[in-house]
Simulated scan of single mutants.
Amino acid sequence: MGIVKKSRVRELSIDFLAYLIGSGLYAVAVNTFSAPNNIAPGGVTGLSILINYVTQAPIGTVMFLLNIPLFLLGLYLLGWKFIAKTVVATFMMSIIIDVTAPFIPAYQGDMILVALFGGVLEGLGLGLVFLRGATTGGSDLAARLLSLKFPHLSLGRLMLSVDAVVILVAALVFQNVESVLYAVIMLFVSSRVVDGLLYGADRGKMILVVSRKSGEIAKEVMDQLERGVTLLQGKGAYTGENQEVLLCAVRRHEVAKLHTIVRTVDPDAFWMVAEAGEIMGEGFKKLKAPDRKKRRNKT
């Protein structure tokens, strides 16, 4: 029981640290780049910046209030454990945005720099929160909810779709086409950074090789690249011959070496290279099973 408690405290501490750092980065993005330059980069944050522009209401406070309906919907669809983390992360971010607003200097120089650096900081802040299994509400939570319906789409792309609506509203409020265009740049950069943090470290290539020498190729791949290989049973539709299809996942920089191996062993091999958005397992991102461990400890 003591081991379980210690592990739980450690996980909560890491969560808190990630939320704190992520909130700080996001606060800099909002207070230094977005709000002072009338850029509403989508989502509840963008709506809060618009409301602040019109009423001078605190951005962080408005963010939290606007998120309450999404919290209730998320509680119903995603469960209280996920929403509990999201409420904590959103509350921290709202507080930090309002508390740091008077102390963080605003940058009102080159608008391209505003969009780029604002997008990077926003993406880093959101990505840290996402990595710990929460969101910061708004389009982040909306993207999580949409991912239940569209699991094949990344969070970054779903956020991009949701935020586009807010950007259109910002065009009417600010009545400035340039601020909207910069918001699009910031939003795009942010979504790419989020995807990079969540999936970038585990992206790679999936290789399929059809060859009469698949066994030899597999041996060379395991010896030279130290990558696991799976041999699938296939059958040529035209020839009717049974053939083995080699399946292998590699890092991007290993594709050229694998190409050399295949062509050296069998110049007539047929092969395909596909993008692998996320690879989990030995040699890549490790699978975790905290629930199973907890059950074993309890027994």
Rank of each mutant, 00 (worst) to 15 (best):
M1D: 11
K6Q: 03
S7D: 04
V9Y: 13
L17V: 13
L20N: 05
S23A: 07
G24D: 12
G24L: 09
V28T: 02
P36E: 12
G43Q: 05
Y53R: 10
T55W: 06
T55A: 07
Q56T: 07
L70D: 10
L73Y: 15
Y76I: 00
K85F: 05
K85S: 14
K85L: 07
T86N: 12
T90P: 13
M93F: 07
T100S: 13
Y107Q: 09
D110L: 06
M111D: 12
L113M: 03
L116C: 06
L116M: 11
L116Q: 12
G118N: 12
E122W: 06
G123I: 06
G125S: 09
G125E: 11
L128V: 09
R132Q: 13
G133K: 14
A142W: 08
S147Q: 12
L148F: 05
K149H: 06
K149G: 00
F150C: 04
S154M: 11
S154Q: 10
A164W: 00
A164N: 00
V166L: 06
A170G: 11
A170P: 05
A171D: 06
F174S: 01
F188Y: 08
S190E: 04
D195K: 14
G204Q: 10
G215F: 01
E216V: 05
I217P: 00
I217S: 01
M222A: 08
Q224T: 13
L225I: 03
A237M: 02
Y238I: 07
Y238C: 09
G240M: 05
V245I: 06
R251H: 04
H253D: 03
K257F: 07
I261D: 14
I261Q: 11
D268N: 08
E275P: 03
E278C: 10
E278V: 15
E282Q: 15
E282L: 11
G283E: 12
F284D: 00
A289Y: 11
P290E: 13
